[in-house]
Each structure stands twice: as C-alpha cells, then as structure tokens.
Amino acid sequence: MRRTHLIAPAALAAALCLPLTGCAGDTRAAEPEPVAPRGLTAQASSATSVHVMWNKAATGDITAYEIYRGKTRVKTVSADRLMVDITGLKPESTYEFTVRAKAEGGAASPLSRPVQVTTRKHTATDDEPPTAPTRLRARASGPRAATLSWRAATDNEEVTAYDIYQRGSRIHSVDGDSTAALVTGLRPGTDYTFTVKARDAADNSSRAGEAVGLTTAGASDGTDDASADTAPTGFRVGTHADDGAHHLDLSWNPPDTGGDVSEYQIHLNGRPATTLMWGAKAPEGRAEHSFFITREAGKTYRVKLRAKLPDGNWGAFSAERTVTTG
C-alpha cells in the first residue's frame, strides 16, 4: 500500500519559497550594501598637510564617509562632502590614505584602494608669504556647489596650495598649480562670501584676495533647507555657585554635520556674549560647557547658542532657555 504524506501549509509555503527570489508573503527587499568610493586622490598642500578627495559612492543610502590614515580613522564627514584636509603631519613623510562609505543603519563599505602621498620639505628659513591671488570669480553650480577661479599668486620659492575661505573659515584647498576649484557641501538657497589665500611649503599664507559673494540655487524639491537640521538640540541651562561666583552650566547635542563641530557662539539676552572653541578634539555626543557669569544672585538670563558649520556659516539657533542665578 502506498502511503500518503501530508505537509503542513506553513511548511509547504517555506519549501516553495526556498528556490525563489521572492514570495508573496515576503515583500522585504534587501538594502544594497554601500560600495567603496572610487577616485581617491591625496595632494600634499604643504610640509604638514594633505588634501584628500574622492568620488561619491555609487550605491547605498550614504550618510557619511570615514577617512583613514593607515589603520587610524582621522576624519568623518557628512555624505555631501567629498574632500577633507588632514593637518598636523610631519614634513617629508609618506602617508597612506583610504576612505569608506557609511550607510543608514551602520553598514560600511570596504575601504577604497589606498593612495600614498609624501608631504613637502619644510623650509625653515622661508618666512616670506606669497602674494595674494587676484581677480576671484564665483558662480553657483547647482544648489550645493560653487565654482571659483582666480589669477595665480607668486612666491619667492613656490606656491604649493590655494586655500578657499568662506566667511573666515577654511573650507577647501587645491594644488598650487590650480587656479580654479569646485567647492561642494554647500546648502541650497544660502548666501556665501568666498576669499582665497595662497600658501607655500613653509605654511606661509598670503593675505586674502578680494572677496566675492554668491547665492546657491534653491533645493530641487522647491524647499529652502538653508537652516534645516543645523541647530543644536536638547539644549539645557543651569547655574551653580562657587566661592561667591555664579556660573552658567550648558549642555546640548551638536547638530548632525557628519563631523566634529568645534566652534559655537553663545548669546545672552539676545546679544552675542562669547565664542566657545574646543582647544582639543570636540566632544563626541552630548557637549557640556560652564563659564562665569556674575557675582550677583537673582540675575535672570535668556540663553541660546549656535554652531559654526563646515561650510563656514553659522547654523540655526538652539531653543532659548531662561535661567536665574542663585
């Protein structure tokens, strides 16, 4: 007698799904893993710095890029930045750099192919800066980039790099043979003011050339996100007394710029009061700062702060808090 074997419906469904790429009961699609960025280059800007650039990762929902010197991660930048300056290096030394992409959820790509670069020779006796670049021109290249061009500077030795500044913050560098640069990582619908300085191998910098301004185009979806997500969050203010002096105690979460935020402007009662700059590495995660405010109890202050962003602009203000000493 031939026996008939019964298969439970759930087991049958599982069996049928095995050879198939998808079944009616499983609609989840695997997120593509990020691929290693390509086109990595490293340029020795001086005896102590290197400018690293790469191409945008081709696949994956990229949230950040991590830059490695050898096996050490030295920088993390947001997904819309494709370049970074690595400083504090030794003259006439060879370094190897790689970069990898990070996706939402924490998945990481393999490291890019490595590139090696040797920093320039330090000229200790060279204390003469280059002349300033002239005839700076700028045009917006879409909502998040700008193209700059200028006339070359001269130097008694050699111009090794040009540094691009936005409202006093250096945001990009190019080789000394270049007289143009594409600046990326900007924000849609935002006013920018650029200047350029020339630099030599001894890190002598010229004075800034003439400034030029532009406004980037609006976002492609019609929104203006110039201040979106740039405000510190979770801002808290308290006070404490120490030997007859009252201090303000601040804490906050830095805005998500993809990298360290090392400079903040603190406002009291609607006016700038002080600028906070971290002397060492900016804190990861929640930041804290305390400073003297008065020797009087019962004084009330309205407090808020904002961050200096990687593009050189100030971000949006945090929520304003009110606190009374004592």
Rank of each mutant, 00 (worst) to 15 (best):
H247G: 13
N156I: 15
T239E: 08
G244E: 04
F194A: 00
M53W: 11
I7G: 11
A140N: 02
R100S: 00
L268F: 00
P129M: 10
E263Q: 15
G315N: 10
Y192I: 02
G168Q: 04
T125F: 03
R286K: 11
K281R: 10
V74M: 00
V196H: 14
G213M: 05
P254T: 03
A153P: 06
A208E: 04
D200W: 03
G209W: 03
G218I: 09
A79P: 06
R100P: 05
P19G: 01
L12I: 08
T275M: 15
P91L: 05
G106S: 03
P143W: 12
L148C: 03
I86T: 09
S169E: 14
P133W: 07
L82W: 01
Y95I: 11
F235I: 05
R73V: 05
P272V: 10
L111F: 03
D260I: 09
A280P: 14
V303R: 13
G244Y: 12
A58T: 06
M83H: 08
E296K: 13
Q166R: 14
A42K: 03
P19H: 05
H246E: 09
M277T: 15
S173L: 02
W54E: 12
A8M: 14
G105N: 08
A161E: 06
T119F: 00
G326H: 06
K281S: 15
T119V: 02
F317I: 15
A30Y: 00
A245N: 15
D26M: 09
A201D: 12
I266N: 04
W252A: 09
H172E: 07
Y162V: 04
Y301M: 02
A132W: 11
R139C: 07
D177E: 15
V74Q: 02
H51A: 10
S318C: 06
A138T: 00
V115F: 01
C17S: 07
K281Q: 15
W150G: 03
P310I: 03
R28D: 15
V212K: 03
D249S: 04
I62N: 04
G326I: 13
D191R: 01
V99L: 01
Q166N: 15
H172G: 01
P255Q: 08
V303I: 11
K75G: 15
R69C: 10
P272C: 00
A11N: 08
D191Q: 01
D177Y: 10
T134E: 08
G60R: 00
Y264E: 09
G185K: 06
T27V: 10
T118G: 11
G259S: 06
G279I: 15
G298W: 02
S78E: 07
L6N: 09
S206H: 00
A202P: 01
A153E: 05
L268E: 02
R236V: 03
T322S: 13
K71S: 09
P255T: 11
Q116V: 06
P19C: 04
A79E: 01
A58K: 01
S251V: 07
Y162R: 04
F317E: 07
G312K: 01
T275N: 15
R100I: 00
T119N: 07
T300I: 06
R306F: 13
S45Q: 02
K299V: 12
